[in-house]
Design a protein around this nucleic acid. Structure first.
Length: 421
RNA sequence: GUGGCUGUAGCUCAAUUGGUAGAGCGUCGGACUGUGGAUCCGAAUGUUGCGGGUUCAAGCCCCGCCAGCCACCCCA
């Protein structure tokens, strides 16, 4: 048997949950004025090296990179921001006016060891607000992320924010950190020894050496006036909007492109892989990709994790079931049953038997599928063209013509809780 | 990439000290020849994750691989 690749999933029984989640996310995004962008699933490897940063874990060990037949180095996208920015530059979207507000939903690929909530092919929803350096933009993005989770019905999550400063103040902070950790260096874990030189900020969120991080210098004390002002405005606006958050000076984020605001939304109902969404401001990514300086903010949300959280919080939608199931009493009525089913399927969700089942089994099948109504087509109905409509929820039944049945089903559709639209 | 746990029917799990694989659920059918969700009866389905080894004999022991889970790493 050929099996699926490690760390990938077939979405079968749950596909209606995916549809539901995607519908909600699209709808919230549009309400915030964002429109969907769909970029290719693979890109030139160079895009991620430059966009995400060569020092990041993603680029160093997690990319699915291969050479195509033309000898080009191709990479399956590990994240969504760099491709969106590439498209922004490539199509000169700034000439259409700023800001550009874009969202995406789709698969991402990272070569990691799988566990619950961490897959090699996973799916992200994300949004980018391109072209504004103002704190209002940060807040709009943060609020969108929070509202998206709320729209799905999630409650058990926490928003944490921080500022990582800019190219002016961050070097000073890094220096202060180096100073602080220098005497501690021999006591740090192996990973932190390497991080000390490569990316000192990462020492802060190391779980093994968390004891030292507590009394380490805090970036917020090193922010330049502009960054400090920006961060304060973000907090004020969040307060004004009544958004709950917590300032966490240890979140630094794994991608190199972030400047100033960074944030994370973690679920309190998940295990180790508890980050539902993460994002921040990236003021220099676009110029890194050859565009003109265009300050921007964005975030990405992990759809699998959101769905695990929905399950934990018991917020999954009900599976949609057919509105009507057309039953043929005898073989003679099968063609009629089929044509009624096709006719009704122009307006309703219809099922009918194609397995040659006896009437009894057709009924069993109708209940198993959760059909609200059954239309019985027997000899009598065939002649009179007045069919029996049975309500499977309360067992009642009436005799109606096809057009009366349609009218009845239409009324039912309005107060049906089987649909989520 | 590191460490630990696990792998038996579609699903959840049994199987004495190694002795020739079973139950529930589900599926399908029947009891019920124009009426489902209850009940009863019956049927189908396994290279015991894969490969090797030890043994008269392996689901069980040993080794390797694969996959999943948990934690680390990191993140969504």
């Amino acid at each position: 048997m050929i099996r699926r690749i490690k760390g990938t999933n077939d979405i079968i029984e749950d596909s209606y949950v995916w549809e539901w989640v995607e519908d909600k996310l699209r709808s919230v995004s549009k309400k915030f004025g964002f429109s969907e962008i769909r970029t290719p699933i693979f890109e030139a490897t160079e895009l991620f090296k430059r966009g995400v940063g060569t020092d990041t874990d993603i680029v160093q060990k997690e990319m699915y990179t291969f050479e195509d037949k033309g000898g080009r180095s191709i990479t399956l996208r590990p994240e969504g921001t760099a491709p969106v920015m590439r498209a922004f530059v490539e199509h000169s979207l700034d000439s259409r006016g700023l800001p550009q507000k874009l969202f995406y939903i789709g698969p991402m690929f990272r070569y990691e060891k799988p566990q619950a909530g961490r897959l090699r092919q996973f799916h992200q929803y994300g949004a980018e607000l391109i072209g504004s350096s103002r704190p209002e933009a940060d807040v709009e993005i943060i609020v969108l992320a929070v509202e998206a989770l709320k729209a799905l019905g999630l409650k058990e999550f926490k928003l944490k924010i921080n500022s990582t400063g800019c190219e002016k103040c961050r070097p000073k902070y890094k220096e202060a950190l180096k100073e602080y950790y220098k005497p501690l260096l021999p006591k740090l874990c192996d990973d932190c020894q390497i991080r000390y030189d490569r990316n000192i900020l990462r020492l802060l969120d190391c779980k093994k050496d968390a004891q030292y991080a507590k009394s380490a210098p805090i970036i917020l004390d090193y922010l330049c006036d502009e960054c400090k002002e920006h961060f304060n405005r973000v907090k004020e606006l969040l307060d004004t909007l009544g958004v709950d958050y917590e300032v966490d000076p240890t979140i630094v984020r794994g991608l190199d492109y972030y400047t100033r605001t960074v944030f994370e939304i973690t679920s309190t109902s998940l295990g180790a892989q508890d980050a539902l969404a993460g994002g921040g401001r990236y003021d220099h990514l676009i110029e890194e990709l050859g565009g003109r300086t265009t300050p921007s903010v964005g975030f990405a949300m992990g759809m699998e994790r959101v769905m695990i959280a929905l399950e934990r919080e018991k917020k999954l939608p009900d599976k949609p079931s057919p509105q009507v199931y057309v039953v043929a009493v005898e073989d003679e009525q099968r063609p009629r049953a089929l044509s009624i089913a096709f006719e009704l399927s122009k307006e309703f969700i219809v099922e009918t038997d194609v397995m040659g089942r006896k009437m009894k089994s057709q009924f069993k099948n109708a209940s198993k599928l959760g059909a609200h109504y059954v239309i019985i087509v027997g000899e009598e109905e065939m002649k009179s063209e007045i069919y029996t409509l049975k309500n499977m929820f309360d067992g009642s039944q009436v005799k109606l013509s096809l057009s009366e049945i349609k009218r009845r089903l239409k009324e039912e559709k309005c107060d049906s809780n089987l649909q989520w639209h």
